[in-house]
């Protein structure tokens, strides 16, 4: 069986990637954000898994606008970094793990998740920025192969939070039934609160974001019970991306240990959050 060793929730704001790509991380507006990442990055560097599963959304770059999958999974050997209209980010392409992809596909379809299969897929900032948050200097290659799981969050109706959490639970079972003994990291991406359009553009709700950062560890059921309208009202129309953290959380154990969390406003128009969890239960004190 494969074993989930950690879960990482993180925003995927494009300007975080741009700040890294342009060497601006030490500038005053950016330094607090990247300082906040440091403890997580150090722990992650010591806990490289054999493969990662990254739950993300495409932003009109990898998939044509006439096709909107609610949930998708990539089965490719390699995922090319997308050109979103300003050249590719200077980061490596992503190697996949087709054997594990096919295993997850079969298990998840058997459990009644109606995935769309991508034999080829270009991945945009929604995918590469979380990889950069994890690994700031990948060199020629990311630390391990990564499997994309895609969630529609930009077009209404998005899947419900409950459905995302259920997908994560099924993902956890599917990983556990993989015949090889490998370790797995799971990334849930997007959020925190933000809204890009309309008169409410610039909306940030730190109270909600802090509640979410706590509940994702201790009470994911509460987050899974919220409607998409709740998310849009409390976290903004793009803050609904947070439902993707529930897929990550669902794949983890009931009790998990927080390694580190960070919260910062602003990264561009967005509140940026990070939460890293060890999949082992907390060690009882004394």
């Amino acid at each position: 069986m494969s074993e989930v060793i950690w879960g990482l929730g993180t925003s995927h704001v494009p300007s975080i990637g741009a700040a890294m790509d342009r060497g601006m991380t030490a500038e005053p507006v950016w330094a607090p954000l990247f300082e906040g990442y440091r403890p997580a990055r150090e722990w992650l560097a010591d806990h490289t898994p054999d493969v990662a599963v990254l739950i993300y959304n495409d932003h009109a770059n990898g998939v044509d606008l006439d096709i909107v999958p609610t949930f998708g999974i990539g089965t490719a050997d390699r995922y090319t970094v997308a050109d979103e209209g300003f050249g590719k980010r200077p980061v490596p392409d992503v190697l996949g793990h087709p054997e594990l992809s096919f295993h997850l596909l079969q298990q998840l379809v058997d459990e009644g998740f109606d995935l769309t299969v991508f034999g080829e897929l270009d991945v945009d900032h929604g995918f590469t920025v979380p990889l950069s948050v994890w690994t700031p200097d990948p060199g020629d290659a990311w630390p391990c192969p990564v499997i994309p799981i895609m969630v529609n969050v930009i077009r209404y109706p998005q899947p419900t939070a409950a459905r995302c959490y259920a997908l994560g639970q099924a993902l956890g079972r599917a990983l556990a039934s993989f015949p090889e003994d490998i370790t797995v990291g799971v990334l849930g991406t997007g959020g925190m609160s933000h809204q890009l359009a309309g008169t409410r553009a610039g909306f940030i709700n730190p109270t909600f974001d802090h509640m979410f950062l706590d509940a994702i560890q201790h009470d994911p059921q509460k987050l899974a019970a919220m409607t998409r309208e709740d998310y849009i009202r409390e976290a903004g129309s793009e803050g609904i991306e947070l439902i993707m953290w529930l897929v990550m959380r669902g794949a983890m154990n009931a009790e998990i240990t927080k390694v580190h969390s960070a919260y910062h406003v602003p990264a561009s128009n967005t509140a940026a959050g990070l939460a890293l969890f060890d999949n082992r239960a907390p060690v009882a004190a004394g």
């Binding site: 089965t75 050997d77 087709p98 096919f102 596909l105 034999g119």
Partner: peptide
Amino acid sequence: FDGPSSRRGR
């Protein structure tokens, strides 16, 4: 026609 064959025959 399963995943591995579709990959082989792509």
